[in-house]
Write a protein that binds this DNA or RNA. Structure first.
Lengths: 345, 345
DNA sequence: CTGTTAGCGCATTCAT
DNA sequence: ATGAATGCGCTAACAG
């Protein structure tokens, strides 16, 4: 910058002024400065700038597993919005490990990121001090319990309700659900919605029909085998997670159970490949990309200092969309009856 | 830091010394400093440190599309390795757009990242000046043409060869391939391997059997319909890309062509869901995670200043692994003949 | 071993 | 409208 100033025959302050447009500079000098910048291939040093201004224009996104199809879409939404606003984003994969998550948060803090977007891991409390300190942080997808925070997520209770309701409308009465750890707000919410729908229709929720496990396909497979081996077996299956859904489908296939004739299945998340299954899968599609964008927008408000409503936080819940395909059909016990027909997409 | 020094009754230099362990400090003072740090909840400011040292301990990873299953795995490998070495990683999605890629590179440079890992987009030349300037950059997966660079990728020629060879061994003679833009080294390589195998076995490669398009499922679908409508149609299909494979399978299904009886299919990349298709998909699995790790390791060597061999660059090619499942079988024209049996996994 | 000091590159007063 | 000077928080000489 000194060199640029010298070459342009002005002071460093003037260079700074034209770079930032903070103060008016005469046209002629502006031109000279720009020429000098080009000639010297000068690029303002963001590090120095950050030290001075206290802002880095960097945010971080910490997520539990980039390898789960849900998150890349989320990251993309947030990253695009962030980039458009002049922010870069540091990606931190916590690998579903609270300790790892805390380490990430610590280094992020040391790096002076301007804000963080986080899909928190089970049992983590690393962020409590952050929200208490009013550090700009907004939670995405997974929300912490008992904390008044800024957050954006799918309306999971509604989504769980929709899933159950779809099966109920098809005449199913014995419906089972496989979910992830219930300390994760997403799974707790979906289960709650499921229960609510069942209760509304005076349908029992048998304990053996609710299976809680980790988010692996292998677990879904095991649960599928177990559930379908029950007497009586469920005629409807809901998977609260896309990986477990894979396992569920594998179990059904190995059991040679006709789907949807004998058992209907509905899953969460709607990656392209759901349309390649036989049968094509009925799913609840989350507005993942949109959640990412909204989350960044909200974070920006926090970074600007706009406060959330005190004590409650600002949480924005987006609706999931039911996509009816071929894996759900009328309950075998109601075959031939007149049921509300599902609209296929 | 001043406060910490004051509280501990030492100088800032001493504080710096205990924080960095750069210079020995007496046990007693060390303890005092640590206590003061805790008491004040002091966290060293990486920004200031970077300004001073000229190193940020941040690298960037620029990729064309986080939404393609291949990349999350790659990112994870690189990120884990980077984190273990004390680096954070900025993620930049270029969205397959050279202009976007260049913008990213510019801001990354301004941010003084210590190095970058890049899967370059077609037609991009944004990085030429970087490699010429000897900026630490290593290319992953997709390599630029005609530049001596550091890179790690799958051995795509070998992988394409393996794919074709597998079908040839099964007796197929009419084999078609769908690939992405051939300016992408990955697709060019796979096609080359395919051609080589065909040539070695004196099999013709008909022009209509080579389809080059973008990386979308819809394109794969269209190509599938077109290829299978040819007279004579191919009995073996290779997809150079995981998304196009999805489209291919959809086309086969809509045509009600029995797979693998009438047509064998083999694809690239091996995400979990390949095992959920009917039939289960034969694929070439890339060592994606490993590529990410290797790439970071190589980048670290560049950042340390260890030079690559002049004029050639250091490129490390990892082998893909053929996973034979159910979507490939003996060519219908050779039904009943004795063929080398494939080992199923 | 420890303290003092001089910048790293920039944005921002405050004069002019 | 412009320039000179100050310091952001830290590390790396250097002197003790």
């Amino acid at each position: 910058m000194r060199d640029v100033a010298r070459l342009a025959g002005v002071s460093v302050a003037t260079v700074s002024a034209v770079v930032n447009g903070s103060v008016p500079v005469s046209a002629e000098r502006t031109r000279k400065v720009r020429d000098a910048m080009d000639a010297l291939d000068y690029h303002p040093d963001h590090v120095a700038r950050s030290l001075k201004t206290g802002r880095t224009n960097v945010i971080a996104m910490v997520i539990p597993d980039i390898t789960n199809v849900f998150f890349p879409e989320l990251v993309r939404g947030a990253e695009e919005a962030a980039n458009q606003a002049g922010y870069s984003v540091i990606l931190c994969d916590s690998n579903e490990d609270p300790a790892q998550e805390r380490r990430h948060l610590d280094t992020l803090f040391a790096r002076r990121v301007d804000g963080v977007l986080i899909a928190c891991t089970d049992a983590s409390t690393a962020y409590e001090s952050l929200v208490r300190r009013r550090f700009p942080i907004v939670f995405v997808d997974r929300l912490p319990q008992g904390l008044a925070v800024s957050a954006v997520s799918t309306d999971n209770v509604d989504a769980g309700y929709q899933a159950a309701r779809h099966l109920i409308d098809l005449g199913h009465e014995r419906i089972a659900i496989v979910t992830g750890n219930l300390r994760l707000s997403t799974h707790a919410g979906r289960l709650e919605g499921f229960r609510r729908a069942m209760q509304e229709h005076h349908l029992p929720v048998r304990d053996e029909y609710v299976r809680v496990g980790d988010l692996q396909a292998s677990t879904g497979y095991r649960f599928g085998l177990e559930l379908l081996g029950l007497d009586p077996p469920p005629t409807g299956l809901i998977s609260s997670n896309n990986r477990m859904l894979l396992g569920l489908m594998r179990a059904i296939r190995e059991l040679s159970l006709p789907c949807p004739e004998q058992v209907s299945v509905i899953g969460f998340d709607d990656p392209v490949w759901t349309g390649n299954f036989s049968p094509r899968l009925t799913t609840l599609a989350q507005p993942t990309y949109e959640i990412g964008r909204c989350a960044f927008a909200m974070l920006q408000r926090r970074m600007r200092g706009e406060p959330e409503a005190p004590g409650v936080g600002e949480v924005s819940l987006l609706k999931a969309e039911l996509r009816v395909r071929e894996s759900t059909a009328a309950s075998p016990s109601r075959e031939g009856e007149m049921l509300r027909p599902a609209v296929s997409i």
